[in-house]
């Protein structure tokens, strides 16, 4: 069997195994969310200011909230299997439309963040390790330590203060200038400009983490026997660093990055709120307060699918980086 058919088989099996996991996540989330006091009707009634108990009971019956929990769960599961994620009473829209609308924004933010954090983290770590114990190494290490220790929301706020308010270089919030009605490349450029601050904010912490990991990993690999062999073969230090050591040193960083995609979604709640980025994080935050359980469940499900898919991608990258890992 060739490697590519092996990988196809592996991917399909992993996706298949993901189904029961997602099902379990839905069920657990369903009960967890229902453990919290209050439902959408309470919130609606509270906002309306004057709702009689009869009207509230009527609303509950309409939303199906008067049924016992297991029945509600079964109804929900049945709908999910038919790819119907329910209806958000709060937004007056089907949940799936809402989520997919926002998914693009979050997906864009996350992709850019991961690329920036892993890319620059690896680069800085590599540089620090190559220039060990010089001023470059010291600057990079101090930078990594400081960003590592600074809270995310504070960085976000300070970036807005400096780059948007004082210097006026970048927009404070949002994903695009809606009023300008840009089209084509102008719109892409507009979104890119809006993207800078949230991406940098969200990635700083991870960037610091990967810088430190990469540096340590490089130093560890430099001490390995195969490096002595490479020197004994008369290779240049360049070749040893970039071909022999780098690939081995990348392995732990890739593993870590894969694991942290889930945490990144959590981090995006804060960043999206600070920068009013219209993504899933902000949507989740809002729906939590509106007790919009259908919407929350939908977001959770999408997040879990995302994590499973990203882990799969990381595993596949890993088996290309490390021939010792066999797909089976």
């Amino acid at each position: 069997m060739t490697r590519s058919t092996k990988i196809v088989k592996y991917v399909s099996r992993r996706l298949f195994q993901g189904v029961p996991i997602i099902l379990a996540i839905i069920i657990i989330n369903f009960f967890l969310l229902n453990l919290a006091e209050g439902d959408a009707v309470d919130v609606l009634a509270g906002e309306a200011g004057s709702a009689t108990p009869e009207y509230m009971a009527q609303l509950r019956a309409k939303f199906g909230l008067d049924q016992p929990l297991p029945v509600q769960l079964l109804v929900y599961l049945k709908n999910v299997l038919a790819l119907d994620l329910g209806y958000s009473f709060r937004h007056d829209m089907p949940v799936s439309d809402l989520i997919f609308d926002r998914f693009f924004a979050t997906g864009l933010l996350m992709t850019c963040t991961i690329l920036l954090a892993v890319g620059f983290g690896v680069l800085l770590g590599l540089l620090a390790a190559m220039r060990l114990n010089t001023w470059k190494d010291a600057v990079i290490t101090v930078f990594a330590l400081i960003t590592y220790a600074t809270p995310l929301f504070w960085v976000g706020l300070m970036m807005i203060v400096v780059f948007s308010l004082k210097l006026g270089w970048l927009p404070t919030s949002g994903m695009e200038n809606v009023a300008a009605f840009y089209e084509g490349w102008d719109r892409v450029k507009d979104i890119a400009v809006h993207l800078i601050l949230p991406t940098v904010t969200l990635s700083l912490f991870y960037l610091a983490l990967y810088t430190r990991m990469m540096r340590a990993s490089m130093l560890e690999q430099y001490g390995q026997d195969y490096v002595v062999t490479a020197r004994a073969k008369g290779l240049t230090e360049r070749r040893i660093t970039f071909v022999h050591v780098l690939r081995n040193a990348l392995l732990p960083v890739v593993t870590m990055a894969g694991v942290q995609v889930g945490a990144l979604i959590g981090g995006s709640v804060i960043v999206e709120s600070v920068f009013a980025w219209p993504g899933l994080g902000m949507l989740a935050f809002e729906s939590l307060f509106a007790r919009d359980l259908n919407l929350l469940l939908g977001i959770f499900m999408l997040s879990s699918i995302l994590v499973i898919v990203v882990n799969l991608i990381v595993d596949i990258i890993y088996c290309f980086l490390d021939p010792r890992i066999e797909v089976s």
């Binding site: 026997d225 195969y226 062999t229 073969k233 008369g234 290779l235 022999h244 490390d322």
Partner: peptide
């Protein structure tokens, strides 16, 4: 190194680059 004087090592697993 490697052309006029070359060397082999004790542990052939770690002395070769695994990837």
């Amino acid at each position: 190194r490697g052309s006029e004087i070359s060397m082999i090592f004790q542990e052939p697993m770690t002395a070769l680059n695994p990837v």
